[in-house]
């Protein structure tokens, strides 16, 4: 049975191709424009979109990474970034550690490039239907075998994750200690990963036979059973993504060649 797709919001209704062009525009603009206000605007728009898309549960996982990066980057770079010179002004002190303004600026440079990208692309990629993406890739002329390998990766991750959770619960029921000191946690890793790996490798021969009987290697042209519906915002969003990318690259080249002065302040 075909999975019913959800087109309840603008983001979900967009075609994968339009989303990929938009993602490309955002990547180039965040890397090349290097502007703090723009970075914060992208973060704010992404968070609003995530709330509207009702994906806050998954976003919490991403937030953990963002917080770890924040603590690591500002903690390490704020106190000992390579650009800190003797006599640089101290912004504040925590636990007898001096946090220098130059160090915080160094942290800003990387943090405000990585985090807006994570927020924006997480929002975009999360809304892409993998089957729609495979249809788009096939229509773009990418060979079926490559498309299958790419799409299958997402499906195998889901399957193996479920299997891992079952094995972990089973091992815990047998008395495996997944908490405690570092050595105990290291010891807990092997009884979980080895059955997951062994189970997946054991199945490959059966899978190969099953795929062969379904004509995976047949040389006739593969047909697609899905059509991606047209949506009025597909073309404007794709055009916006391309324009944003072209503008960002041109701007960076012109600034580098000193043809123009940076009219967007390089705060990051």
């Amino acid at each position: 049975m075909l999975q019913e797709r959800d087109y309840s919001t603008v983001l979900r209704s967009l075609s994968p191709a339009a989303k990929l062009w938009l993602a490309m525009g955002l990547i180039f603009s965040l890397i090349f424009l290097k502007n703090t206000y723009y970075a914060f605007a992208v973060i704010a728009i992404s968070i609003v979109t995530i709330i509207r898309e009702k994906q806050t549960g998954l976003f919490k996982l991403l937030m953990v990474t963002i917080v770890i990066l924040f603590i690591s980057m500002y903690g390490i770079y704020g106190t000992m970034a390579p650009n800190i010179m003797e006599g640089d002004p101290v912004a504040f002190r925590i636990f007898n550690l001096n946090f220098y303004t130059t160090g915080i600026a160094y942290a800003n440079r990387y943090y405000l490039r990585v985090v807006p990208l994570m927020c924006a692309l997480f929002t975009i990629f999360l809304s892409i239907d993998i089957t729609d993406l495979s249809v788009t890739m096939c229509k773009a002329g990418i060979p079926y075998k490559y498309v299958f390998t790419f799409v299958d990766s997402f499906q195998v991750i889901t399957l193996l994750r479920k299997e891992m959770e079952q094995i972990r619960d089973a091992q815990r029921a047998r008395g495996l200690n997944t908490e405690g000191n570092l050595i105990q946690r290291f010891k807990a890793f092997v009884p979980i990963i080895v059955p997951v790996v062994a189970n997946s490798i054991i199945k490959i021969q059966d899978q190969a036979i099953a795929m062969e009987t379904k004509g995976f290697n047949s040389e006739c042209k593969k047909t697609l059973y899905r059509e991606i519906p047209a949506y009025k915002w597909n073309v404007p969003v794709a055009a916006f993504g391309i324009a944003l990318a072209v503008f960002s690259i041109t701007y960076r080249i012109l600034v580098a060649l000193k043809v123009i002065e940076p009219f967007i302040s390089n705060i990051i």
């Binding site: 075998k145 195998v156 991750i157 994750r161 790996v197 997946s200 490959i204 190969a208």
Partner: peptide
């Protein structure tokens, strides 16, 4: 066919290893 099966399995094992 084996390659098409093994590459996604490798990707998934890497991902699950990171999660664990």
């Amino acid at each position: 066919t084996y390659i098409a099966i093994m590459i996604p399995i490798g990707v998934a094992i890497n991902y699950i290893g990171g999660i664990i």
